[in-house]
Write a protein that binds this DNA or RNA. Structure first.
Length: 788
DNA sequence: CACAACACGTTTTTT
DNA sequence: ACGTGTTGTG
């Protein structure tokens, strides 16, 4: 039986899955079946090595990935169980038997596996142990802690800068200060340590804001997303018993998307694995493993402190550090099951231009496929028109294609506009993936604030958010006098609000409203231990008057909000169904704070997907349009002067290309509307790095006949390309195809011209440089001369 | 205390 | 261009 299920794997996958104890780094290329490796490995640990599911910890970065992993493991076990007890494949069994098998698998195996995001897992640990923690300044929290989201954190920092420390908002922009604090936390630095690292005025001030920020969090019995990881790390460092408990518990640790870990997350994993010993000295690998899966080439989140050098350092930290061919602690999954050979070759060649990476190529397992088509558009409207014509043409030509199989990927959200307009015009159904999140909506945050205030009396921020929502006649001045009393007496705001006499003396005419509000919170707080989450939510929605108020407004917008509140109630019900053992409001709130979004509705699977390249990671589509490949847009202008940033943009491009299964279209425009005005645009550096022979284009550098032929069927909407002579060559000394001589690099040919005028840059392929490598040089480079 | 005019910034985003 | 957040007025 066991051998049978391992036969679904290729040799390297099998090597990864069968690895039992010790460290292992799995370099998993795009589309190489890494989720398969992860899930089969967990199954193998349980079935073959009889590991207790309780001893397995699997960490992911998104809830979606965690959910998918859980489902696939459950199915794996259910399939095996079906074959064993019924001698049939799972799908061949009647529905109720399948359900029974699944619930049996859940009860005996998957329920005890810890599979989740770093944040969800740490949240679980903290619900056990946070009361045993005290930070370096003696701050403490209780298990009823609130989790402040990014906007809560933002407004807290802003309040500190303006009201507490009276700093100049211009000099200390709350957003960048908040970013600095978050970065400090992600590196595991306390305010004091941060100050040591930034020994200047700005560093001192930020350290101060950071310290007051932590005071405020503690006052509110709240922590932010960064603390969710950082506090367990600090707790494990200061408390040997707690550390030893979790170290003993999680004997087999798996980490997905390891290239996305930051320093603190790495520290957490290391503490759990080695029980605090240094990683390279740790030797007690009996019945213990750490198994990390990642791909440095898909690291696209350094702007939020992800550090792919952690992945590159795994061999040194935990592994044997031997060369790739001899090592027993690294496996590369390079067979790609997703894309055609043409697409893979393009991706491989592009990423070769990066210097910081682990050598790896994606090996094709499918046919050669069709060439990638690169379209040069006049502007963003023309680009959108090209995309829709191609989609319409392909959809008509192929019976098995429907709109759900197309994706349009762009660098910035603003680019979606032109595509949305045209999709609406042609009546093509589409969905925007990502974008505004459900739990970020005002009405949802309002309701959650009620719930948080009920669970956590110290959560003053939430209390203030809804004390006058809906209107209860509690105005700014009333709130101010209540807050002032709270500060002067040194007691939480809730103590004031819930005390009738205090309210009467402080709130004057508003006293009635304040007391009514306090009564609602109090009443539901008393119900916490005896009543399920949904009942409390229902009670709050009715008695707070929130729903009544929305309905009274009678606008379309209010109706929308009401629908969303209804959705939230549904989410509570769904939570209760999925968490039979913990139907509490506390459980739901943790879940809601850490959830990015509600699940897609299934009908949307038939829509064209529009999303940023970042959102596309982990997804795949038969047909992909990679749009806006223009210098300054993609790569972004913020990365142009930083080689490391350019490499990250290149990885982003690599991610985009490797989303495509069958066909890839790339496009760029000659001019584009940006912040209201038209701006000229030049082709992206990445286009110059893509091999010509793998692409068809509508530009004169390749055969135009090919292009006209392939578009002819699509109708007359597409414009003809301007002849190449119309390049802005009149104000340039150089144009594509010119032979040049460079003092340092020798003879070469110009392959691309970026920008125009004095600040233009040239891409030159020098004959003397190995591997068709190009150099990007400023047009002002004196060492460059023309040769004919 | 509410609404309207105005200034501002604008890569990517999960938890 | 456009949405957000802050200021000013009735």
């Amino acid at each position: 039986m066991t051998t049978d299920f391992l036969s679904h794997l290729n040799p390297s996958q099998r090597q990864a899955v069968e690895h039992f104890c010790g460290p292992l780094l799995v370099i998993a290329g795009a589309g190489s079946g890494k989720t398969r490796a992860l899930t089969y490995r967990i199954a193998n640990l349980v079935l073959e090595h009889h590991v207790d599911p309780e001893n397995i910890l699997a960490v992911t970065f998104t809830n979606k990935a965690a959910k998918e992993m859980k489902e696939r493991i459950e199915r794996l076990f259910a399939e095996r169980e079906a074959a064993r007890s019924h001698d049939k494949p799972l799908e061949a069994l009647p529905g109720h038997v399948q359900t029974k098998l699944r619930s049996q698998v859940y009860k005996t195996i998957t329920k005890d596996l810890w599979i989740g995001t770093f944040h969800a897992l740490c949240c679980r640990i903290l619900r056990f142990d946070i009361e045993k923690f005290q930070d370096e300044r003696g701050r403490k929290w209780t298990r009823a802690f609130s989790i402040f989201d990014e906007s809560d954190a933002q407004s807290l920092v802003k309040d500190i800068i303006i009201n507490q420390l009276n700093l100049d908002e211009k000099k200390f922009d709350p957003r960048s200060v908040r970013y600095a604090i978050s970065n400090a936390k992600n590196k595991g630095l306390s305010p004091q340590e941060y100050e040591k690292e930034q020994p200047n005025f700005r560093g001192r001030v930020i350290s101060n804001v950071y310290s007051v920020y932590q005071d405020k969090l503690a006052e509110n019995n709240a922590i932010d997303f960064d603390d969710l990881i950082l506090i367990p790390v600090q707790l494990f460092r200061q408390n040997e018993q707690i550390r030893a408990y979790w170290h003993k518990r999680f004997r087999h640790i798996l980490v997905d998307e390891y290239q996305d870990t930051n320093r603190t997350q790495y520290d957490l994993i290391q503490l759990l694995v080695t029980n605090g010993e240094s990683a390279s000295k740790f030797e007690d690998w009996n019945y213990r493993s750490v198994f990390v899966v990642g791909d440095a080439d898909q690291s696209i989140y350094s702007f939020r402190m992800a550090d792919f050098t952690i992945l590159m350092g795994f061999q040194h930290d935990f592994g044997d550090g031997l060369p790739d061919d001899d090592t027993r602690t690294m496996v590369k999954l390079q067979e790609n099951y997703r894309s055609t050979e043409n697409i893979l070759q393009l991706a491989n060649e592009l990423i070769e231009n990066n210097t910081e990476r682990i050598d790896k190529i994606l090996k094709p397992t499918r046919g050669r496929g069709e060439s990638t088509f690169c379209y040069r558009a006049q502007d963003e409207i023309d680009e959108a028109e090209f995309v829709i014509q191609q989609m319409r043409r392909l959809e008509q030509m192929n019976a098995d294609l429907h709109w759900g199989k197309f994706a349009i990927l762009y660098r910035t959200n603003a680019q979606s506009r032109a595509f949305e307009d045209i999709l609406v015009r042609w009546g093509v159904p589409y969905k925007i993936v990502g974008g505004l999140r459900f739990y970020d909506r005002k009405e949802i945050k309002d309701v959650l604030a009620y719930l948080r205030a009920i669970v956590n009396p110290a959560d003053t921020l939430s209390l203030l958010r809804v004390i006058n929502t809906p209107r209860r006649g509690v105005g700014k001045s009333t709130i101010e006098s209540l807050q002032k009393a709270s500060i002067e007496l040194g007691i939480p705001l809730w103590e004031i609000i819930s005390d009738e006499t205090s309210v009467k003396t402080l709130a004057g005419r508003s006293a009635k409203g304040v007391s009514a509000f306090a009564a609602i919170i109090e009443k539901h707080r008393e119900m916490l231990d005896s009543v399920s989450a949904s009942e409390i939510v229902q009670g709050v929605l009715e008695e707070s008057g929130y729903v009544r108020d929305l309905k009274a407004q009678g606008t379309d917008e209010a109706e929308d909000r009401f629908q969303n509140v209804q959705e939230l109630y549904n989410a509570v019900l769904q939570y209760e169904e999925e968490n039979e053992d913990d139907k509490s409001l506390v459980g739901f709130l943790a879940n809601a704070s850490l959830a990015s979004d509600l699940d897609d509705t299934p009908e949307e699977a038939t829509n064209v997907s529009l999303m940023t390249l970042h959102s596309s990671k982990g997804l795949e589509f038969p047909i992909v349009f990679l749009v806006g490949l223009e210098q300054g847009l993609f790569p972004s202008y913020r990365s142009l002067d930083d080689p490391a940033a350019i490499e990250e943009e290149r990885r982003l491009c690599y991610v985009g290309i490797t989303r495509a299964q069958e066909r890839l279209f790339i496009s760029h425009a000659r001019e584009r509307r940006l912040y209201g005005n038209r701006e000229p645009a030049s082709p992206s550096l990445f286009l110059a790095e893509m091999p010509r022979e793998l692409m068809d284009t509508n530009t004169a550098t390749s055969l135009p006949s090919k292009w006209t032929k392939s578009l002819a069927k699509g109708g007359s909407q597409t414009r003809t390309a301007a002849p190449v002579g119309a390049e802005p060559s009149d104000d340039l000394d150089w144009s594509v195809g010119d032979r040049v001589m460079h003092a340092q690099f020798g003879v070469g040919e110009i392959t691309n011209v970026f920008g125009s005028g004095a600040k233009a840059t040239l891409a030159i392929r020098f004959d003397g440089l190995p591997g068709m490598k190009r150099k990007i040089l400023p047009i002002s480079d004196r060492a460059l001369q023309s040769i004919d």
